[in-house]
């Protein structure tokens, strides 16, 4: 019941949004150029108030990347998954959402560090775990001749 209600609000808020309600949690798919705009609406709309970004991570699908955000509204009790595709595999870039949820600041740094997706307008985009000049280990084509053992 709650899921249909949420789907209705989202359809009103952003016409033409791709909504998938077949899973346990409602999922929406944003185009990468509307990523920041959609995030802003989700956080500020009084009917949604998604204030808690509990996870943000990226996946390498070899020809493109997916970035997935898991949102909760601690006030209204909704949950939502928002995903987007970053099409340019050689030079991936996405708008930052760290101005909306501050925890995204560090999760985006982690994605940048391990997957090499750069976030435009990010206040402090530096490597988090690895040194500058290291490759991006979570990419599927990552090779480490010294530490990898091929079976």
């Amino acid at each position: 019941m709650e899921k249909e209600q949420l789907a209705q609000i989202l359809a009103e808020l952003v016409p033409g949004l791709e909504i998938n309600s077949s899973k346990e949690i409602l999922e929406v798919k944003a185009a990468s150029n509307t990523w920041h705009e959609l995030a802003g609406k989700l956080a500020s709309d009084p009917r949604l108030q998604f204030n808690y970004l509990h996870n943000l991570y990226g996946v390498d699908w070899q020809t493109y990347f997916t970035v997935i955000a898991y949102l909760d509204s601690t006030i209204l009790g909704y949950s939502l998954i928002v995903r987007t595709e970053v099409a340019d595999h050689d030079n991936p870039s996405l708008d930052t959402i760290s101005d909306i949820w501050i925890t995204a600041n560090f999760q985006e740094r982690e994605i940048y560090d391990l997957l090499g997706i750069s976030f435009s307008n990010h206040p402090d985009l530096r490597r988090l775990f690895l040194e500058d000049g290291w490759g991006f280990p979570l990419r599927k084509d990552y090779k480490d001749d010294i530490n990898f053992i091929e079976r």
Partner: peptide, 10 residues
């Protein structure tokens, strides 16, 4: 509380 939610402090 608002900042704790924003930072994801759990």
């Amino acid at each position: 509380k608002e900042e704790a939610v924003g930072y994801g402090l759990t």
